[in-house]
Design a protein around this nucleic acid. Sequence first.
DNA 1: TTGACATATTCCTATATAGGAATATAGTAT
DNA 2: ATACTATATTCCTATATAGGAATATGTCAA
Lengths: 116, 116
Amino acid sequence: MVMARTRTTFDSFNAIAEPKRRELIEALVGKELTVSQIVETLGWSQPMVSKHLSVLKQVNLVLERKEGRFRVYRVNAAQLKPIQDWVIQFEQYWSNNLDHLEDYLNKIQSKEVKDE
Amino acid sequence: MVMARTRTTFDSFNAIAEPKRRELIEALVGKELTVSQIVETLGWSQPMVSKHLSVLKQVNLVLERKEGRFRVYRVNAAQLKPIQDWVIQFEQYWSNNLDHLEDYLNKIQSKEVKDE
DNA sequence: TTGACATATTCCTATATAGGAATATAGTAT
DNA sequence: ATACTATATTCCTATATAGGAATATGTCAA
């Protein structure tokens, strides 16, 4: 069995690897847009928008609602949490960088203050 | 000009899309390991380890140090910050999600209790 | 120098794209 | 039914993988 690259529809990590799909998600954040509105906003071809939406839909990064002949899309941000959860475990290592040590200590301190 | 998928070496987003490379990064976190040690830890073939390291090295997610005939690798976590920065802008939306509202309220409440 | 060890690279191939163009599907209005 | 609008899908092709096997490169030790 020959392995190739992990499918874009395998998970959120792979879906958002494509810069255009990140742009699409950004365009949708906090609002609902139809395909045509996205086409107008981003200036991409309609099939291109639909195809990228299809990938995002398959990993549940966007949700779709039918409204007459329109389809209204919105972001399902919860699907980004696994990425946040994975990345966050390394935060201390980039924060430990001398350049950010001060910020890091401040953050720790304010957390400790809050907890008391 | 025909476009294909974004190269794995294009940026951190694409490099970490591959599950094995995330596993490799996890194996390296907080320590330095030689290729052989990684081979032993993960149970992969040596060429496979070297090839994945090569991709991670090209996007600066790992740093390499020569030590005699060994090469010692370590994680450069700072390269994960752009991912954190991108994902974090959506945090409010997954926290505000109705499905998780209850959890969210509980979390808030327990914090407030602690704060008093 | 020779051998042993550590690591990187090359060669091979099935696979999954991304984008453009063309076309299909579906819902609405007249 | 027909025309129109909105969106999805199909067809095409150059491209970049991932993994296995084989091989190359580099470094040390006797």
